Simulated scan of single mutants.
Amino acid sequence: MPTGKDIQITIRSIIDEARSTARELLNEMESQDLSVERYLMKAKKLARLQRDSDAQK
């Protein structure tokens, strides 16, 4: 059974991954000419990390 410390580490790693994904998405949108599908895939990943069910649709 996970302890409080384990849960905090997991939450922190999810937040770190969400931040990293958001930075990557913004950098790619500003500096690269990728397909809309590629941007949407990253945006959906970010929504999933944030548990935003409306944005995942």
Results as ranks from 00 to 15, higher is better:
Arg23Gln: 11
Glu37Ile: 11
Glu37Asn: 10
Lys42Ala: 10
Asp33Met: 04
Asp16Asn: 14
Lys42Asn: 10
Gln8Arg: 15
Met29Ala: 03
Ala43Phe: 09
Val36Lys: 07
Ser20Glu: 12
Ile9Ala: 15
Asp33Ser: 10
Leu46Cys: 09
Ile11Phe: 15
Gln50Ile: 11
Thr10Gln: 14
Leu46Asp: 02
Gln50Pro: 08
Lys5Pro: 15
Ala47Gln: 03
Asp52Phe: 02
Ala47Phe: 02
Arg38Ala: 12
Arg19Trp: 00
Ala55Asp: 03
Ile15Gly: 02
Ala55His: 04
Arg38Phe: 11
Ile7Leu: 14
Ala43Asp: 08
Asp52His: 01
Lys45Val: 05
Asp33Thr: 05
Gln8Tyr: 15
Met29Cys: 04
Ser13Gly: 13
Arg38Asn: 09
Ala47Cys: 03
Ala18Met: 07
Glu28Pro: 11
Thr10Arg: 15
Ala18Leu: 05
Ile11Cys: 13
Ile15Val: 12
Leu26Met: 09
Gln8Trp: 15
Arg48Ser: 08
Gln32Cys: 00
Ala22Met: 02
Ala43Lys: 06
Lys57Cys: 11
Ala43Ser: 11
Tyr39Cys: 01
Ala43Asn: 09
Glu24Gln: 10
Thr3Ser: 15
Lys44Gln: 09
Arg51Gly: 03
Ala22Ile: 01
Met29Lys: 03
Gln56Cys: 02
Met1Trp: 12
Ile9Gln: 14
Gln8Leu: 14
Ala43Met: 10
Ala55Val: 02
Thr3Tyr: 12
Arg19Val: 04
Gln56Gly: 05
Ser53Ile: 05
Asp54Arg: 08
Ile7Val: 11
Glu17His: 11
Lys42Phe: 12
Lys44Tyr: 02
Thr10Ile: 15
Ala18Gln: 08
Leu40Ile: 09
Gly4Lys: 05
Arg19Phe: 06
Glu24Asn: 09
Leu25Ser: 01
Met1Ile: 14
Met29His: 00
Asp52Thr: 02
Ile9Val: 15
Ser53Leu: 08
Asp6Phe: 14
Arg23Leu: 04
Val36Leu: 13
Gly4Met: 07
Glu28Cys: 09
Glu28Asp: 13
Arg38Asp: 09
Gln32Pro: 02
Gln32Glu: 00
Thr21Val: 13
Leu34Glu: 05
Leu25Cys: 01
Glu30Pro: 09
Ile15Lys: 08
Leu34Gly: 06
Ile15Arg: 08
Asp6Ile: 07
Leu26Glu: 02
Leu46Ala: 03
Ile11Tyr: 14
Arg48Met: 01
Glu28Phe: 07
Ala55Ile: 00
Lys57Thr: 11
Gln50Cys: 12
Ala47Arg: 00
Leu46Asn: 01
Thr10Trp: 14
